[in-house]
């Protein structure tokens, strides 16, 4: 089964940026999925079982925290590596992110290099 990365953000340019950052992985057969809200993200996670989810915290409908909590605590999908994304300086979210079971936490603006390296590492694609 091919590896999948789900990018969840209500802002289109952030989705595009992450996708662009990770484009080299396409050649490794990694498939990209995107969602612009928490509700469809949750549905995609259940149906597609992505390896990594880049999950924005601040989103309409269902926010990233709630999505993460559902996935990790209710659905017990431990294999899904969740990277929470939030604006810099919202320090309080870090602890909250840990509580809801996120694997790691990244701040926006993110460093593209760091983001790509993390994905490579989680997917086990290091050369």
């Amino acid at each position: 089964m091919s590896k999948k990365i789900l990018i969840v953000d209500d802002e289109a340019h952030i989705r595009m940026l992450i996708e662009q950052t990770l484009e080299d992985l396409e050649d490794e057969g990694v498939e990209f999925l995107t969602a612009d809200n928490g509700q469809s993200a949750l549905e995609l996670i259940q149906s597609e079982k992505p390896n990594i989810v880049f999950l924005d915290v601040m989103m309409p409908k269902m926010n990233g925290m709630d999505v993460c909590k559902k996935v990790k605590q209710d659905l017990k999908m431990d294999d899904v590596f969740i990277i929470l994304l939030t604006a810099k300086g919202q320090e309080i979210d870090r602890q909250k992110g840990q509580e809801v079971g996120a694997n790691i936490y990244m701040t926006k603006p993110f460093d593209p290099e760091v983001l790509l390296n993390k994905a490579i590492q989680v997917l086990g694609l290091e050369k």
């Binding site: 340019h13 595009m16 940026l17 662009q20 950052t21 484009e23 603006p109 993110f110 460093d111 593209p112």
Partner: peptide, 12 residues
């Protein structure tokens, strides 16, 4: 997308 990314990198 690439242009946006490089601008974003600069912002970063």
């Amino acid at each position: 997308g690439n242009e946006v990314l490089s601008l974003y990198q600069e912002i970063n």
